[in-house]
Amino acid sequence: MRIARFSIDGNVAFGVVEGDTSSATTATEDGPVLDIIKGHPFAEFERSGQRVPLSKVRLLPPVLPNKVVGIGRNYAEHAAELGNAVLDDQGRPEAPVAFFKPSTSVIGTGDPIAYPSFSDEVHHEAELAVVIGRMCREVPRDRVQDVILGYTCANDVTARDVQRREKQWARAKGFDTACPLGPWIETELDPSDLGIMCTVNGEQRQLGRTADMIRSIADLIVHITEAMTLLPGDVVLTGTPAGVGPLSVGDEVAVTIEGIGTLTNKVIKRG
């Protein structure tokens, strides 16, 4: 099931996406539709039977998270391209590197990424995002799936020069518009081996598979919830494959994940 959050005529709602979404960016009235749901997707809900064409709505970020928890260096080739080790002195995986992106960094598909004035080197990072479906902490490994609502595409936009210069990642990864999410949440998906691709102006930049993650989604949820409570709608970013690179004003960047869809954003100059 694909669940989208959208606005139409000034109203915001959730809906179940029905129909072929492979050409959703150019949808017509005969294309995919949204069956508006009663309530929200973080509890049992009913479909209203009221349908609107996908082409007639504005897709919003599929969730408004209380927090976004990012994981760094979860693909060996990406860690290597930035000169970072992923194994300790005994050859074991190091503990996951976690960071936060604030809720104010979240935007949806079609929304612009505003190039920050304090950076000259902004990079794209295509990632699979996990959407949490219920409040949870200290989640045992065999219950991880119970706390997940579904999955969406993410772009962990990063001011790489700021990240290097400041030695921590709050401003580099937390500036406004630095967390595109979308286009919707896919609730019925095996995330263990999905293709991830990033293109800039139609040119392929990143291509990887979730099977190459150093730490599985279960590992990450267990690790994070040892320390903090995750709330419904919170998002976990699972890391990016190799191939990260620069974005410039005017670029169009797209993140496509197998079984989900495509998240597209254009880069603009910050006003």
Rank of each mutant, 00 (worst) to 15 (best):
I3K: 10
A4F: 08
R5S: 05
V16D: 00
D20T: 11
S23W: 01
S23A: 14
T26M: 11
A27N: 05
E29D: 15
G31I: 11
L34N: 09
G39D: 10
P41S: 09
A43C: 12
E44Y: 12
R47Q: 15
S48W: 01
P53G: 01
P65W: 12
N66T: 15
V86D: 07
V86L: 09
P93A: 11
E94C: 13
P96L: 08
S105M: 07
P112Y: 03
F118N: 11
H124Q: 00
V139W: 04
P140I: 00
R143Q: 14
V144D: 10
V147T: 14
A154M: 14
N155T: 03
D156F: 03
V162S: 12
Q168N: 13
K173D: 06
G174T: 11
G174H: 01
G174L: 11
D176I: 00
I185Q: 02
T187A: 09
D190R: 05
L194P: 02
G195S: 13
I196Q: 03
M197G: 08
G202R: 09
L207C: 08
S216H: 04
I217C: 05
A218Q: 15
D219S: 06
H223Y: 15
H223I: 00
H223V: 05
E226P: 02
L230E: 02
L237A: 11
A242K: 15
A242D: 13
G245Y: 02
A254N: 09
G259C: 00
G261I: 07
T264I: 14
